Amino acid sequence: MTMTRTQYVIAAGLIVATALVLYAMGHPWICKCGTVKLWHFQVVSSENSQHIFDWYTPSHIIHGFLFYFLFWLIAPRASLGTRLLLAIGVEATWEVVENTDYVIDRYREATVALDYYGDSVLNSVSDILFMVLGFVLAARLPVWLTVTIAIGFEVFTGIMIRDGLALNVLMLLWPSETVLRWQNSR
């Protein structure tokens, strides 16, 4: 992918600014448990969304797929680097919004995330970087393969943790008692 030096600096600046905003909001740099793990397997845990990647990492890769498509549609003349910067801006904004008290409370009352108190800064930065990975993959892979990977991620996380991007959005915006009961019956 071709990006200018300025675009790299802007991308890094957006990510650093997001980390600083999250820290200023009271989120810890790393898990309050004091360790940094590559992966934490347990979903219903105070360590979920605290480490480098977790069960929700595939959702962020799918964000990258979706943002690639969105910015290809609405800004077809923009360079790939510019579209990636726009995607980073949207993902960074989501990471901040997702970690506000309002959204955290919404997750805890409407989804299976009962013990969720927000992401660590490390996890949020990792989420942004995994979105970048998804964006780059979508730019390089055939559409059919990108769609297949997205569906595979959704099916896999649906089977493994009874959650994923589609279920997460559904439960955040239009909570379903039936879906919540199914998610809690693991």
Rank of each mutant, 00 (worst) to 15 (best):
D54A: 14
L66R: 11
A138M: 10
Y102L: 14
F71Q: 08
R106M: 04
R162A: 12
A11H: 06
I62R: 01
I104G: 00
V121T: 05
G64I: 02
T82H: 11
V155R: 02
T4M: 04
V179K: 05
V169S: 11
I61R: 06
A110R: 15
S120V: 03
T4Q: 05
T148N: 00
T57W: 08
L172V: 11
G89Q: 05
M131E: 06
L14D: 08
I159E: 12
I74F: 12
A113M: 14
R108N: 04
H63F: 15
L180N: 03
N123F: 13
A92K: 01
Y116R: 04
F69E: 15
M160T: 11
D105Q: 14
L22W: 09
V97R: 00
T18H: 07
P28Q: 08
V97P: 02
R108S: 10
L165P: 02
A166R: 06
H60Y: 10
N99A: 05
V136C: 12
A138G: 09
E91C: 10
T146I: 12
Y116H: 07
I161F: 11
A166C: 09
L122H: 07
Y116A: 00
P28A: 13
T93P: 02
M3N: 03
W55H: 10
S185K: 14
M25R: 12
L129S: 01
V36M: 10
V9M: 09
A92Q: 08
I159Y: 15
T57I: 06
C31D: 11
E98T: 02
D119K: 01
A11N: 07
F156D: 07
E91M: 08
A150F: 13
L165C: 10
V147A: 13
L141R: 09
L73T: 09
Y56S: 06
G152F: 14
G64E: 00
T178Q: 13
V90N: 01
Y107M: 10
N99E: 10
Q50H: 11
E177L: 03
G64H: 05
M1L: 13
M1R: 03
L114R: 08
G64C: 03
C31M: 08
L141K: 08
W29R: 04
L66I: 13
